[in-house]
Design a protein around this nucleic acid. Sequence first.
DNA 1: AACTATACCTGGAGACTCCAGGTATAGGCC
DNA 2: GGCCTATACCTGGAGTCTCCAGGTATAGTT
Lengths: 112, 112
Amino acid sequence: MLTRELAGASVRPLILSILSEGESYGYAILSRIEALSGGVLAWDDGTLYPVLHRMQNKGLLESSWRRADTGRRRKYYALTDKGRRALEREKQQWLQVDAMLAQLWGLQPRLT
Amino acid sequence: MLTRELAGASVRPLILSILSEGESYGYAILSRIEALSGGVLAWDDGTLYPVLHRMQNKGLLESSWRRADTGRRRKYYALTDKGRRALEREKQQWLQVDAMLAQLWGLQPRLT
DNA sequence: AACTATACCTGGAGACTCCAGGTATAGGCC
DNA sequence: GGCCTATACCTGGAGTCTCCAGGTATAGTT
């Protein structure tokens, strides 16, 4: 698994990025992350939900309870404009740090 | 500046990577990081020192006080074998997460 | 009726960054 | 000599965050 710190640094960008593709809900976001990582990475749901709540409190997300075709209640989250701007900032920051590490590791820099 | 989380996720890999090039000391590590970031990123030294102490406690680093040619006392840090292994792990984890984000952002994957 | 997968939530423990403050000294300038 | 700046290190407390363990509820399958 990931170090606590890297987990912390990546949850938010991952959530924002996933939601930038369209609205989704907690359980699906978890599955998406697991799939993206090739099954390597799986967050505890008790970690994800508080993060979603905090992000909503900060105005990055908005949510609405809806009933899916399956009959289940789901809380769908969608990006707000503020969330979209936050994603852009987080992305720039990630690329900034990544560029530093790439330099130290002798990897070729990323072309943005 | 960086989000607290990204800062947390990157300090350790950055320190380990910088020290993998050879021993160094707190103040120089700070300057190195600032230089690597093109002046954008500057850690507070009150953040760095406790990190170095923790890493030493965990056996990733070893330190020795020495007097530099300038006459100043410096605490030099060097990687231990355990530290080198930790770097390798942290690197793999970073690349793992980076690959996920790259996928979401439509960037080309990194060839390792 | 029991089980599994789906779907959400909370509280407390522990860990960590950040900030503000502190100590000490070499070298340059007046 | 006296002052300032850059160099060099350290600590304590506030606030924030992940992680874990626990809890609730229900659709579908056996």
